[in-house]
Amino acid sequence: MSTEAITEHGPTAGEYIVHHLTHLNSTGHAQESIVQFSILNFDTLFYSLLLGLLTVFILHRAARKATPGVPGRFQAAVEILVELVSNQAKDLIHPEESRRFVAPLALTVFIWIFLMNAMDLLPVDLLPRLWEGVFGAAGGDPRHAYMRVVPTADLNATLGMSIGVLLVCLWYNVKIKGIGGWVHELFSAPFGKHPLLAPINFLMQLIEFAAKTLSHGMRLFGNMYAGEIVFMLIALMGAAWTTGGGVSGPLLWIGQVVAGSIWAVFHILIITLQAFIFMMLTLVYVGQAHESH
């Protein structure tokens, strides 16, 4: 998998990882500061849009052909997902009117995140290497051909979605409780209605919203980022056989195959689980926005 990434003069392991963790962005080189809103990550945008379109395409196909008669396998599969999300939504969000928006949102998020996570299962060097070829052929320096293919391993994507969920939560807070009711709740929950407690309550509420949103986005990001790095380390282990030589070389190669297989199989669980968790938390948070304290 990764042997191809080692060129004649071969990057070091550190260089290899840094190269793989650098986004294809609007500047053409790695982002320098932590927050820089002048930059766009083209790779994340491209893959998340592509997979988002694939998601709605799949769902729309199923929806167009949906019949109340005997369903085909494809329809049944989509229906299972719809039922899954719909049942969870029914448990967590009581007003039917809210479910009409939140349940489809949760379904989209589930499938979309699952597909984005599943990009992790492609060989780590496959798409970046192809991009290097294209970039080089277009006259660029292949060493600066950056590409990350897992959008959910980009904090921008996961935080973008979790902020989206936060906005939905705020919207329903206002919609269900009214502006006055919600402001009242901000200052009177969780500790109770007392002028002295109001600032503390408000602070707690702010912290709660921030913590929910950050943990929501960070959880998914962290899992996928870690998974990606483990795949890179496994690839590096195999790559080391060209430089290692001796008996350890072939063993390292076998090690990569074994470890890569095990981690990939385990990762199937993680990508599904993380997509499911993100969806469930979306429903839980929106459900909480409906509850008055």
Binding site: Q36, I39, V56, V109, N156, A157, G160, G164
Partner: peptide
Amino acid sequence: NLNSTLYAQLVVFFILA
């Protein structure tokens, strides 16, 4: 690193939903 990809993702999120 955080950058404007976040906003783009946010918009895409709502469009898909």
